[in-house]
Design a protein around this nucleic acid. Sequence first.
RNA 1: GCCGGCAUCGUCUAGAGGCCUAGGACGCCACCCUUUCAAGGUGGAGACCAGGGGUUCGAAUCCCCUUGCCGGUACCA
Length: 493
Amino acid sequence: MTQTQEVRVRYAPSPTGDPHVGNIRTALFNWLYARHTGGKFILRIEDTDQLREAQGALSAILQSLRWLGLQWDEGPEVGGPYAPYIQSERLPLYQEAARRLVAQGHAYTCYCTPEELEAMRKMQQQRREPPRYERRCRDAAYREKKAKEGGPSVIRFRTPLEGDAIVVHDLVRNGVSFDPATLDDFVLLKSAGFPTYHLANVVDDHFMHITHVLRAEEWLPSTPRHLMLYRALGYNVPKFGHLPMILGPDRSKLSKRHGATALLDYRAQGFLPEAMVNFLALLGWSLDDKTEVLSQEELVRHFSIERISKAAAIFNIEKLTWMNGVYIRKMGPEALAAQLATALTHHAQEKGITLAAPITQDALRPITPLVQERLHTMQPQEVWDLCGFFLTPLPAYGDAPFRKSPLAPQARRAALEETVVALESLEDFSATALEGALRPLAERLGLKTRDLFMLIRIAVTGTDVAPPLFETMAVLGKERTLERLRYAIRLAG
RNA sequence: GCCGGCAUCGUCUAGAGGCCUAGGACGCCACCCUUUCAAGGUGGAGACCAGGGGUUCGAAUCCCCUUGCCGGUACCA
């Protein structure tokens, strides 16, 4: 091995759909390791399965990474010294490697058809044998006979029938050994000339000088095959680290069945990328026994393979939601106002809501301090529920919300009328001035402050859950506040 | 079935032989703050460290077995 060579890691998704959170967590760990070590983070697209390829998947992958701020140093759209970074554009490389393996006796051509293989497997299952390729074409005579018949063929690796255990020196779980006798003659090159994952991944990691392969645990069982390939091809072997899986709430491998698992769905649900990164980093990695909130810079500084855990983790959306709230509370007023503007505009348009004025960042700035610690996500509905009444001409309410008031209808009307009188004469409409006027009013009316304030809150906001009353009224302004109070009086009868 | 991995509160985790009558966080429950809701503060419930054998003066931590869960077993990645 060379002395301290630069770390080169890669994230190698296949474009079969929107990357889910487990997948992206793998990308994040690779990125963190690259940044931590000052190495390179490479993005490679493994599109060797023509059947499973999904429209728009590549763009979803790029978007997911960009949203989280995981910039790749080499890969699609940025290029790099080992381009192209899309496997379907590197076919000759794999074909050449396969040819070489055949020439050197490490691989052979197989003419068995999918139907034959299927039949074989059925038989094996009936005989309660492990299903695997029976190596018919490994026999030269049989193979040559089949070759004369023509038809499509694949190239299979000639796995040694016996030999010493193959041990994977895994960075997160130490030595894992496999008996080569349990391995079959797996396919390297498919009949259409495309490589399988096994071949492509080894060839590319070699040519792209990948030093560390950090991938999901589901790959651990096929690592011995890769090791054999490295050996047969005469390549240097990178270090391997198999990351714990992320499971759905039912403890099975994360899939579409588990609801929102695509990373970009979380964006749509109002989660912040900073929170997502922090949360994902803690799924399978920890700094110590206390620290939960870490910025991206801190994660980069502290990340280490040694502290990756071995056990699979369940994605816990409740904790994510809490963490998202933490990050919302950390935002500056400008950033928050901008986020609110986006969410609110989206919601108003979607629902066709009539606005009192256009939604602008400027207009939203005064209300940010009122809602910042009350938001858990930037989900449009949630944001609207909290600030919508600031933006509409009148809150959309009828009689219903007033039932939340403990006061009788008569008393409600009287109290609202008194409130209007008290506020009409108020010059200074600041929160403190309002409080100064309304507390004495409650006393004068013989009402509990909470009951009077609740009544006013409902009249002004249309709901019994809202930001602090006086601040809310101050932001709304005298005119709009009085308008709503008068409207409520009219409603009351 | 076979191969492999994993195993600490419901969940994410700390713990690398004595500091553990097992710590933190989310969630949950109470109380405080309080004009509602949050946020914040305080406290609480919650893990016989999967079970059983060893090793050791001493084990959540090391070894073995069992069990459970997960993954792999494709011309999918």
